[in-house]
């Protein structure tokens, strides 16, 4: 009898919290499915009626969304591939080779993750303007790669360290070079970890608004995270909020799919002392 009220309180608070967590998703989706005049109404309805896909049609025909969306795929995809490739190489060295200065390297990796981006981006902007990387997709990819590399290096290092050395040594005895042994033995074994880091870097770059905000000027070189924000700020965007919400839902979808598909690996990797932003 004494346990019952406690249980009720716990279930009630859990329901309230989960409702708070889920409601924005539900509200964004249902609002994106109603005609715009049903959005700006003093007596909002909980469910869309009539149901309409017009807002999604608007979104996929809106150049200010579609072009940056393509850029988002390009920038996030390439950043993920480059960051993980170079990161894996460095991580392998850190996990397997003995050389002086490793502790310093790890400390530097950990501290660069902590730097205030807004400070470093001022000179990056000036340098980019001078060397012609300002307002280019390559510039965005380079900056995002630099920002995600420390994370990739640290996490991949811990994956590689967790794998046994003996198989690799066996392969090296059998005539493989060090890199060959790495490619043939360690890489296939850590594929789950590598995919998790790739997806993490992809999702980070996908959502990042700061680099494009400072380093990309034209719509042709912006990513969707930024163009959605710009449309939100403009008066024209304000009048078609339903369309914007539809675009927002579409933009969330790829990240959400990756996240759900790889939830387990991501969570294991992320709880290993990494950071999210």
């Amino acid at each position: 009898m004494r346990r019952l009220p406690g249980q009720v309180v716990r279930l009630a608070s859990l329901s309230v919290l989960l409702l708070w967590v889920v409601f924005p998703f539900l509200w964004a989706i249902t609002c994106s499915l109603r005609p715009i005049d049903k959005l700006f109404t003093l007596t909002p309805e909980w469910l869309p009626s009539p149901l309409t896909f017009d807002n999604y049609l608007w979104a996929i025909h809106e150049p200010n969304f579609v072009i940056p969306l393509r850029n988002s795929f390009l920038v996030s995809g390439l950043t993920a591939v480059i960051s993980v490739t170079l990161g894996a190489l460095a991580a392998y060295g850190l996990a397997r080779l003995r050389y002086p200065g490793k502790k310093t390297i790890i400390t530097i990796m950990l501290s660069t993750q902590m730097l205030p981006t807004m400070l470093v981006i001022i000179p990056i902007f000036l340098i980019y303007a001078r060397v012609g990387l300002f307002n280019t997709l390559s510039g965005l990819i380079l900056a995002s790669t630099a920002w995600t590399l420390p994370y990739a290096v640290l996490l991949l290092r811990s994956f590689f360290s967790g794998l046994s050395v003996s198989l690799e040594e066996q392969a090296m005895v059998d005539g493989c070079g060090r890199l060959g042994a790495f490619m043939r033995i360690t890489l296939p074994l850590s594929i789950a970890g590598i995919i998790a880091v790739t997806v993490y870097v992809f999702i980070w770059t996908w959502g990042d608004m700061l680099f494009p905000f400072i380093l990309a000027k034209n719509i042709d070189n912006q990513t969707a995270a930024l163009s959605l924000f710009n449309m939100m700020q403009s008066t024209r965007g304000a009048t078609n909020y339903a369309g914007l919400l539809a675009a927002g839902v579409l933009f969330t979808l790829p990240a959400m799919i990756l996240f759900v598909a790889l939830q387990r690996q991501l969570l294991e990797g992320l709880t290993a002392g990494s950071l999210k932003e």
């Binding site: 919290l17 989960l18 967590v21 889920v22 409601f23 924005p24 998703f25 509200w27 964004a28 609002c31 959005l39 700006f40 109404t41 003093l42 909002p44 999702i203 996908w206 959502g207 608004m209 995270a225 930024l226 959605l228 924000f229 939100m232 909020y241 914007l244 919400l245 927002g248 839902v249 933009f251 969330t252 990240a255 959400m256 990756l258 996240f259 759900v260 939830q263 969570l267 999210k276």
Partner: peptide, 27 residues
């Protein structure tokens, strides 16, 4: 548990877009 981590997957721009709409002073 899966529900509880969902906000993680929402890009911050969309988070702002959605919450600004929920918190809107008029609508």
């Amino acid at each position: 548990r899966g529900l509880a981590i969902m906000p993680w997957a929402m890009p911050i721009t969309v988070t702002a877009l959605t919450w600004k709409w929920i918190l809107d002073g008029q609508w």
